[in-house]
Amino acid sequence: MTRPSERRAARDKGRGAAMGAARDKGRGATLATARGTCRGALILAGLVAAAPLPALAHAALLEAEVATAVRLLARYDTGAPMQGAQVIIYAPDTPAEAWDRGTTDAEGRFVFVPDPALPGRWSIQVRQAGHGALTHVQIGAGAPGAGPETAPVPAAVIERPATTAGPMQRAVMVALVAWGALGTALYFRRRGHGDASA
């Protein structure tokens, strides 16, 4: 299960988010939907947990969506995860400008939902302490494993070093997994002035 703190962090991170729990795709949950436009959302199951009356200060709105996500794992060739590394995502339509930014979690993981309206080669850069790697994933037509959006199967697995230099050179490994129909997006939208723990 995703911890509430993770959900809060994911909600606040924008279009991408670092979420260790997201690797547990079978359990669904935890993709930031902060873009708020249901970009990539194929199914929106909005559940109103309580009547949205202004007088209910602690009411919550729960939404879930199904989307295609890209899961990133960044680590050094020593096996150590790149914790808190900077992530920059570039979309194919404007490859010179960052589409989104974020940071990996304690396990070197990061998940984001690419815009399905922007098919093509997406590039993801991860950097930390003078070490970096860039990897690419094809989204949309021609993407490996592209299929029914509701089939939660791995669509692509890319794992490669950023360098092939000798073992003394610290390298960065980036693994990408894109899969369709990740059940995602649990977040709470508080109404009124309720406390987060409400």
Binding site: R127, G132, A165, A171
Partner: peptide
């Protein structure tokens, strides 16, 4: 020998 000085920014090179 064994020193990997050359990079492109923080990107690595095959030397």
């Amino acid at each position: 020998d064994g020193l990997h000085v050359g990079h492109v920014g923080e990107g690595h090179c095959h030397d």
